[in-house]
């Protein structure tokens, strides 16, 4: 099962939508850097197929409050998610 890492704002890039349409059942998504703007409560659900995580430090840096369907994680947990999934795909444009 794939771990998708998204790093661009959903308002400026197709990274998140491309990721969502390339997401299979059981995959997981991690929002980092500017992609955390997609982690707020008011942002529409990204996908039903995969749990969505958000890097807490990047959200905090930007004053983002993470919505209830998204789980905040630290870098250690991110590494663990990488060990639990394969392959790992980065969406950065």
């Amino acid at each position: 099962m794939t771990l998708h890492i998204v790093s661009k704002s959903p308002y400026s890039s197709s990274a998140l939508t491309d990721c969502a349409s390339s997401c299979a059942e059981g995959d997981a998504i991690v929002l980092i850097e500017d992609a955390v703007y997609g982690a707020v409560e008011t942002y529409p659900e990204i996908t039903e197929r995969a749990p969505v995580y958000c890097l807490q430090s990047d959200a905090e840096a930007r004053g983002i409050v993470i919505g209830k369907n998204v789980e905040g994680i630290d870098e250690t947990r991110w590494v663990t998610l990488c060990t639990e999934h394969n392959p790992i795909v980065s969406w950065f444009k």
């Binding site: 099962m1 794939t2 349409s21 390339s22 997401c23 299979a24 995959d27 197929r49 394969n86 392959p87 790992i88 795909v89 980065s90 969406w91 950065f92």
Partner: peptide, 15 residues
């Protein structure tokens, strides 16, 4: 057609 199923068949993905 289904990129999600296609991608997960691989060990590594270089983006």
């Amino acid at each position: 057609e289904d990129c999600g199923s296609f991608i997960r068949k691989f060990d590594h993905v270089l983006s």
